[in-house]
Write a protein that binds this DNA or RNA. Structure first.
Length: 818
RNA sequence: GCCGAAGUGGCGGAACUGGGAGACGCGCUGGACUCAAAAUCCAGUGGGGCCACGCCCCGUGCGGGUUCGAUCCCCGCCUUCGGCACCA
């Protein structure tokens, strides 16, 4: 009885058994169309192999493990795969830092991560492992690119792009945070380059509407995506320049304020600006301003604190509602990327326009007033109230904003001067990267044929070996001259390959589909197999992917559904976003030097204790603070369970009465743990519940009369703890005389045992608890009240006063009001 | 500024549908075992009070409200965190 709990021996033992027996492999059904007992797809976001696993991964994959184990033992076929997001900036930068070739560094990291994953005992189907940098994978990434190209959803255009001077590459809008590079923090510059884009804006409406198809996503993630897509309803209104006969449409959400427009503003990048001022006295000044604006750092230009700048063009437009001539200005507070790059300025009802008007002494004309209130002269009235009214707006005066909006648009539409319009904040997804370590874009440029896609049968376009992969402003692939030179697939003439690679997020926008059919070499997947497993029933990952990855993957699936390759429209039905791990008051990060290495902690306490602790420490969806001493509590808990298990195992099987107290406790614990994990998605409380059960059993273990119930309760605790601490659970299960706990049915609570013959009646006086008393279940209400009144402590509080009200909640409490 | 989430012991946190606040764990205090330590076990641990081996009062950010009864619902504030932010 002196054998100590020693994770160092039991953990490797079971890891070997699982590997040998391929315990968690789940083959595809032979006939995928046939429905089986029930199947489910549990997926966690795949890691970047830019280093080894950190505590965030441990939390992520342990969460997935618990869910997968419980569902597997509940009778589902569970798909629970794993892979590596191997291409891209994180891995490449790690390689440059360490001075090795990205492929070697990446593959070394993958080997280390795979080892860590085994060491954690995660129940992964290793037969489905994929890595996005392997030709067998990225061949199909290229294939999918060509699909999108064929559908007109991948296109090339010259565009002002976000350029990171440190990473020496273009960034997607989503990768720019406050004007700085998401990865390295450098200030992003503007640059004009020919780049590849995916037309995600074509799906803006569907990305919003089809949120209805999702079963359970965190509200904040949906809000973030909604904000990012930024749908605004309004109108497009055409302003006209009479001198040059040019139309200048604007987008506005406030057509009700059209009569308040006092000037007009173009973005500096607006294509009509040069022709507008050509040959006029304003030409030099305006063009100088345009040049200056282009050079201004994006962050400075976007800062609303900075005073507005601008310049008058000398031209005027005509306001279509009242024929008034409005001066045209150019200012960089108007963005070319949004709406039409031109605005009507209504300083009385827009803060930015108001600021500009104040700065340049332009008129302010109030056309909407709050009912009964006077407009504030010193600021724009942008507020919305139920009963605001239009003034000085011709026939629309006196109507409310809500009424005026459609009325004015309708009036304009009748004259061909406007129409209802919707505008989005979302921009197309820029996927070109001037970096080496990525999926080559399967395109060649031919002088005669132009942009030519590489034929499907020529895929993959292999990433060439190059000596110099450090970024220098143009793609390192350009240096592989033999590779760049290619025959045009169309005319056979001389052509050049595209030398940019794809954004990593392209690779990860479809990996969850590849897992379903990972070895298919004739297609990216068999649609019957993909449709069998997908959509993912439970997706788990960090909230940092709330917009990037999760939006891109949704876009991809919608496109693939539209072209008939998938039978569903949303990739992830349920999403769980786990919180981050903090240590010493800050987010764990290498740069802050406050990283706790899972390897060290596992070496010291064992994988089971780490798995338990990381989920016990707090709610899984909130940020948590790692506390060094905390894990010792979990080790102690496992030690207690271990000693209990060995002692019980040593005694052999003993019968127990069905309704013994510990048997009831065991069933109550089953009910609670199952409900918490399955319905409430809570992972810390089950550990507390099991711990409570073990404490109770531990106290009773030396009573020979109770050996039977002690055994049953111990076995229950072992069975329930298995998803969290699979190694120790497996070892104890074996010692208790059973086999392969991971294949055993998840315990079910017997409803009969959850019902008690008696319950503890809470007795309140005026809503305050005064006493408790054990009473039989089903006692009539009148009798409950009578029993309550008899209690001496209750009587002293009643103090002979008249009882005005008796509230009885059967099975719970009696409240007497005096 | 706009949107969202959250404020509970010394600490992490629990409390399911409006019904016993503080489960579980950390830390701490006292005790047992031990030559001693480690490990383990037992008891205690929100604050205050008293005619003190039991009972009373207060207590879930602050101020109100609804209710027999509020950590939970409503109104107003304060604080913290997250997202968005010249998007017309």
């Amino acid at each position: 009885m002196s054998e100590r709990y020693d994770p160092k021996t039991i953990e490797p033992k079971w890891q070997e058994v699982w590997a040998r027996e391929r315990a968690f492999a789940v083959p595809n059904p032979v006939a995928p169309g046939e429905e089986d007992v029930g199947h489910t797809y549990v997926l966690e976001m795949l890691p970047y192999p830019s280093g080894e696993l950190h505590m965030g991964h441990v939390k992520n994959y342990t969460l997935g493990d618990v869910i997968a184990h419980v569902r597997r033992r509940s009778g589902f076929r569970v798909l629970r795969p794993m892979g590596y997001d191997a291409f891209g900036l994180p891995a490449e930068n790690a390689a440059i830092r360490e001075g090795g070739h990205p492929r070697l560094v990446t593959e070394r990291n993958i080997a280390a991560i795979r080892e860590q994953m085994h060491r954690m005992g995660w129940a992964i189907d290793w037969d489905r492992e994929v890595s996005t940098h392997e030709p067998e994978y990225y061949r199909w990434t290229q294939w999918l690119f060509l699909k999108l190209f064929g559908e007109g959803l991948a296109y090339r255009k010259e565009a002002g792009v976000n350029w990171c001077p440190v990473d020496q590459t273009v960034l997607a809008n989503e990768q720019v945070i406050d004007g700085h590079c998401e990865r390295c923090g450098a200030e992003v510059e503007r640059k004009s380059l020919e780049q590849w884009f995916f037309r995600i804006t074509a799906y803006a409406d569907r990305l919003l509407e089809e949120m209805d198809l999702l079963e359970s996503w965190p509200e904040r993630v949906l809000t973030m995506q909604r904000n990012w897509i930024g749908r605004s309803e309004g109108a497009e209104v055409v302003f006209h320049i009479e001198e040059t006969e040019v139309d200048l449409p604007v987008f506005t959400t406030r057509p009700d304020t059209l009569f308040g427009a006092t000037f007009f503003v173009l973005a500096p990048e607006h294509p009509l600006v040069p022709s507008l001022v050509a040959g006029t006295p304003h030409e030099d000044e305006v063009l100088e301003y345009v040049r200056h604006a282009a050079l201004r750092p994006a962050a400075e230009r976007a800062d609303p604190e900075k005073e507005k700048t601008g310049v008058f063009t000398g031209r005027f437009v005509t306001n279509p509602v009242n024929e008034e001539r409005l001066p045209i200005w150019v200012s960089d507070y108007v963005l070319m990327e949004y709406g039409t790059g031109a605005i009507m300025a209504v300083p009385a009802h827009d803060e930015r326009d108001f600021e500009f008007a104040t700065r340049f002494e332009l008129p302010v004309r109030v056309v909407v007033v709050p009912a009964g209130g006077e407009p504030d002269e010193g600021a724009a009235f942008v507020g919305h109230s139920e009963d605001e009214r239009l003034v000085d707006s011709a026939q629309f005066s006196g109507t409310s904003s809500a009424e005026a909006k459609p009325a004015i648009v309708e009036w304009l539409e009748g004259r061909g001067l406007g129409r209802p319009a919707v505008s989005f904040r979302l921009r197309d997804w820029l996927l070109s990267r001037q970096r080496y370590w990525g999926c080559p874009i399967p395109i060649v440029y031919c002088d005669r044929c132009g942009v030519v896609p590489v034929p499907e049968e020529d895929l993959p376009v292999l990433l060439p070996e190059v000596e110099e992969y450090v970024p220098k402003g143009r793609s390192p692939l350009a240096a592989a001259e033999d590779w760049v030179r290619a025959a045009c697939p169309r005319c056979g003439g001389e052509a050049r390959r595209e030398t940019d690679t794809m954004d990593t997020f392209v690779d990860s926008s479809w990996y969850f589909i590849r897992y379903t059919d990972p070895h298919n070499d004739r297609a990216p997947w068999d649609p019957r197999i993909a449709d069998y497993w997908l959509p993912v029933n439970q997706y788990i990952g960090g909230v940092e992917h709330a917009i990037l990855h999760l939006l891109y993957a949704r876009f991809f699936v919608k496109v693939l559904n539209d072209v008939g390759l998938l039978g569903f429209r949303e990739p992830f039905l349920r999403l769980f976003t786990q919180g981050m791990i903090h240590y010493l008051g800050a987010k764990m990060a290498k740069s802050k030097g406050n990283v706790i290495s899972p390897d060290e902690i596992v070496a010291r306490h064992g994988a089971d204790a780490v798995r338990l602790y990381i989920l016990f420490i707090g709610p899984a969806d909130e940020d948590i603070e790692w506390q060094d001493r905390g894990i010792e509590g979990m080790s102690r808990f496992l030690g207690r369970l271990w000693r209990l298990g060995l002692e019980v195992a040593g005694r052999g099987a003993v019968a127990h009465p069905d309704d013994a107290p510990l048997v009831r406790r065991a069933h109550e614990t089953i009910a609670r743990v199952t409900d918490d994990i399955g319905r409430r998605f809570q992972f810390n409380t089950p550990i507390a519940a099991i711990s409570e059960l073990v404490n109770d059993v531990y106290r009773a273990k030396d009573d020979p009369e109770r050996a039977g119930e002690v055994r049953l309760a111990t076995e229950t605790a072992v069975s329930l703890v298995q998803p969290y601490a699979p190694h120790v659970a497996e070892e104890l299960w074996e010692r208790l005389g059973h086999e392969r706990l991971w294949t055993q049915p998840w315990p079910e609570a017997d409803p009969a045992l959850l019902e008690h013959e008696t319950f503890e009646l809470v007795v309140q006086v005026n809503g305050r608890v005064r006493d408790r008393v054990e009473v039989p279940v089903g006692m009539p209400e009148a009798e409950l009240v009578a029993r309550a009144k008899e209690l001496p402590r209750v009587r002293s509080h009643l103090d002979g006063k008249e009882i005005r009200k008796e509230i009885v909640v059967p099975g719970k409490l009696v409240n007497l009001v005096v």
